[in-house]
């Protein structure tokens, strides 16, 4: 594994639920992220997959320190930034940036494209007007938009072009890490491939690290080096794409992958639609034991009581004693 750039250690993000008008008191807790450890190496792409409500986006926000953690540590470039204040974070913010799902939401409708890309530079760097213009045009060119786009308004651009602007903005301050939160989900199929290629090119040119949050497992398999599968705020399986996507061991990863439609009508008819029953439980009332046991076909009585630990097996991490036993995985020393 390459040198670690960013790291989450046993991170929990809980949202308290209050009740009472005059004397509000905490009545419950939404455990959005409940003890997650992840590391992203320099130049590495880590994929984060899971259904809505699994805590993917909250985890991304915690890594960026856009969301305070309830417990655990956040490290970036060797520094423990868990409790850094706004002013301290300013220096880190330019080194880790984010691209959101909805390109509409990341473009101010009253700001020209050039100004939108220049904004992070105005905040973080002191450049002359000429330097600023030069840099903005270079960034636009890097994401495949020519100089004429600098003077256009967001509404004049298509969804794919706006997402390119979002990427240019995220790259403006020469970050080392970019959190990509479902960056292609809102785009048309023919445009998704363009943006995936662009992200891959930029990573090569700039040696970037990505945290790629997505539910399109095909795109994750294409772009990522490693994958972590999240279920109800916990990692259930993690490892290389070859391990997790090609040879999944956790019953949830297996079910998730089987839910993905096949792109071949003959194979699709032969296999049929593979349905995982039920829905992800509410993080307000997580089931006891393994959170997946109510939907798991391989669950044993013990799964209802004991919460499985995430254990390392070679390069793979797995939180399922049943799968571990069946696959006879050797425990890493």
């Amino acid at each position: 594994m390459p040198e670690v750039l960013a790291q989450l250690t046993d991170v929990q993000v809980h949202f308290p639920v209050h009740s009472g008008l005059l004397l509000p008191r905490e009545v419950a807790r939404v455990r959005a992220v409940d003890g997650v450890s992840l590391a992203i190496g320099k130049g590495e792409v880590l994929g984060l997959v899971g259904e809505s409500g699994s805590g993917k986006s909250t985890l991304g926000r915690a890594l960026l320190r856009l969301q305070d953690v309830t417990a655990g540590r956040v490290h970036f470039a060797g520094a423990d930034i868990t409790h850094w204040h706004r002013r301290q974070l300013q220096a880190v913010r330019r080194r880790m940036t984010v691209v959101f799902q909805d390109p509409e939401a990341s473009c101010n409708p009253r700001m020209r494209i050039g100004d939108a890309v220049a904004e992070p530079l105005r905040v973080h760097e002191r450049l002359t007007a000429a330097e600023l213009q030069h840099k903005v045009l270079a960034l636009l060119e890097q994401v495949g938009l020519d100089a004429s786009y600098a003077l256009r308004w967001p509404h004049e651009l298509s969804g794919g072009q706006r997402q390119r602007v979002g990427i240019a903005r995220a790259l403006a301050t020469d970050p080392e890490l970019v959190v990509l939160d479902e960056p292609i989900s809102a785009l048309d199929v023919s445009i998704q491939a363009q943006v995936l290629n662009l992200l891959e090119d930029l990573r090569r040119q700039r040696g970037l690290s990505y945290l790629f949050i997505g539910h399109d497992l095909g795109a994750v398999a294409h772009l990522c080096d490693r994958v972590a599968v999240l279920y109800l705020g916990r990692v259930v399986e993690a490892g290389s794409v070859a391990d997790v996507i090609a040879a999944p061991q956790h019953p949830y990863t297996q079910a998730l992958l089987r839910s993905v439609p096949l792109h071949d009508p003959v194979a699709a008819r032969a296999r049929g639609l593979q349905v995982l029953d039920g829905e992800i439980p509410s993080p307000l009332h997580p089931p006891p034991g393994c959170a997946f046991h109510p939907r798991c076909r391989r669950a044993l009585p013990a799964c209802q009581q004991n919460r499985p630990e995430l254990l390392a097996f070679g390069t793979r991490q797995l939180a399922c004693p049943v799968a571990t036993q069946d696959a006879q995985l050797p425990i890493a020393s």
């Binding site: 048309d188 199929v189 491939a193 095909g218 794409v241």
Partner: peptide
């Protein structure tokens, strides 16, 4: 053809996706 060729899949890992240039 282009639409079918642009779908990302694990089999084509490491290759460039065959994107359709331009917009509708």
């Amino acid at each position: 053809r282009a639409l079918l060729a642009s779908i990302p899949a694990a089999e084509h890992r490491g290759q460039r996706l065959q994107a359709i240039a331009g917009s509708p």
